[in-house]
Each structure stands twice: as structure tokens, then as C-alpha cells.
Design a protein around this nucleic acid. Structure first.
Length: 260
DNA sequence: ATGACCTTCCGTGAAGGA
């Protein structure tokens, strides 16, 4: 089973790029963030023609998440993160393959002053509660998306972010650790504990050419899912494409349940 | 170097991104 998370930075602008990537990698599930369109404007038919049903939570201009699932139908479990009292389109949850897939786009936290930053922490609090809920009832889950968190020093190229950026603030990293410490596995670090691997390179200042990247897109796995982990990598090649997103897909492969 | 880049919108610059 293969799944991926990808902040696509406008799904309409990049639908062909996404379709090409789907054809090459053939994931069962693709969780997209920053689709930047209303739900009704999402190119659902385009993806149906390519073998994927979609679960879409959009809004005008900003944010927006959508999960593609191989097949002709899928159903939304929730179109918002329970306990996060905010209308922004930042969370969609589905079930498929015996798993819950939470697709999330965490607030950046650099805009809106301390209130904007507090919104980021509030999202984390609600996400942590959601994880606790599923752990308690022993439901296997994957929470993947754009966390807007650089978990550790090695996840940030020197100078790529200011020391007080909301992506690296101590409180931000602590919130991420609290979530992990419930017993979740950061898929990438489980298999690549020290390798320098990024998922985002700014469009500005030749960040890509200088490899001035950061790792902010993550897939967190509940315990039984983590045991099935086979491979995980950020598909860096995608950043070198024509008119790319500033994020690349993070692709994860799991063993089938029956393979033990 | 207060720089740079990209996307959206009843847009023609501003806001948000990270």
C-alpha cells in the first residue's frame, strides 16, 4: 500500500503535474494541501478519469485540502478537525484500506501576530486530542500533511529560516513532540534518522539551487501502521519540474497487513 | 541588501505564504 502527502500550492494550476506524478508512482491515497479553490471548483472529474475519487474541503483563494483515493468513490469522515474552532479549510479525514487518513494543513503561524500563532498551537491541541481518541479505541491511523513544523535542527538548512520563525519556535517543536510522544512514528525519521532530507524549498533567493530547504511535511503513523513501514522518501525530483509547487510529495510504502 | 518568488482575486496591487 502506498500513500503520499503533497502541498500542491494550487490544484487547478498543477493538475497535469499531479496527474503525471500519480501515473508514475501509482499511490493508493494522495493527501493534498493548499488546493486554493472552493470545493465546487475542485477538478474532481479530471481525477476520476485518472482512477481517483476525491474527498475535498476547499475555500476561496487560500488553504483547502483534498484526499485522492484510488477507485470511484470515497466518503468524508469529518471535514474539520474536531475541537479546532476555526472555519479555515485545513483538515479532511477519510477511511480506506482499514485505516483512518487524516489530511492536515497546519497554520503557518507567522501571520496575525500572537493570535495567529495561538491558532497554530490550538490546531496542535485538537490534533493531539484526535490522536488520543483513535489510540484509545485502537483504530489504526495516519496523520499526514503540511505540519508547518521543522522538528529539529537537522530539518532546516542553515539560514533557511529566521531563529524566531513560527516553524522552529520552541513551543512549536514542543507541540510536535507531544503529539509524537503519544506513541506515533515520524515515518521519515524512522527509516532515515540522520540523513538531510527536505520537503520544501522557497521560490525565493535560489533556495532550490542552493539546496536551502526545510522538512515540514510529515507522515505520522499509529503503532500498528508503523510496524508495516517499508520505505519513505520526499520525491525531490518534483521540485525540478516546470512550474513546480514549492513542496514535494512525501511518498510512503506500507507492507500489506497479511504479509505479517 | 528592507532584495529576490508565487498564487489568488469582480485583481491591475495586496495579502498570504514559509
Amino acid at each position: 500500500m502506498k500513500f503520499a502527502t503533497w502541498n500542491v500550492n494550487s490544484v487547478r494550476l498543477r493538475q497535469n503535474l499531479i496527474a503525471d506524478w500519480l501515473e508514475r508512482h501509482d499511490p493508493d491515497v494522495l493527501m493534498m494541501q493548499e488546493i486554493k479553490c472552493e470545493t465546487a471548483a475542485f477538478p474532481a472529474d479530471f481525477f476520476i478519469e485518472r482512477g481517483y475519487a476525491s474527498a475535498v474541503v476547499g475555500q476561496k483563494s487560500y488553504n483547502g485540502v483534498a484526499t485522492l483515493v484510488k477507485g470511484d468513490r470515497t466518503e468524508i469522515v469529518t471535514d474539520h478537525l474536531p475541537g479546532f474552532d476555526n472555519p479555515a479549510a485545513r483538515y479532511v479525514e477519510i477511511r480506506t484500506q482499514g485505516l483512518v487518513f487524516g489530511n492536515l494543513y497546519l497554520p503557518n503561524g507567522n501571520s496575525g501576530g500572537e493570535e495567529g500563532y495561538a491558532t497554530k498551537l490550538a490546531f496542535f491541541e485538537a490534533l493531539t486530542a484526535r490522536a488520543e481518541h483513535y489510540l484509545r479505541e485502537e483504530t489504526d491511523f495516519i496523520f499526514a500533511g503540511d505540519y508547518n513544523v521543522c522538528p529539529a535542527a537537522g530539518d532546516c538548512a542553515p539560514g533557511a529560516l529566521a531563529p524566531d520563525d513560527a516553524l522552529v519556535r520552541p513551543q512549536t517543536r514542543a507541540a510536535f513532540r507531544r503529539l509524537i510522544w503519544l506513541g506515533l512514528t515520524d515515518a521519515l525519521r524512522a527509516l532515515h534518522p540522520t540523513e538531510t532530507l527536505y520537503t520544501f524549498w522557497d521560490y525565493q533567493a535560489g533556495a532550490w539551487q542552493r539546496n536551502s530547504g526545510i522538512r515540514i511535511d510529515h507522515a505520522l503513523l499509529s503503532p500498528r501502521v508503523a510496524e508495516r513501514l517499508v520505505s519513505v522518501f520526499p520525491d525531490k525530483d518534483e521540485r525540478a519540474m516546470e512550474r513546480p509547487s514549492d513542496h514535494v510529495p512525501l511518498l510512503v510504502t506500507l507492507r500489506d497487513k497479511t504479509e505479517g
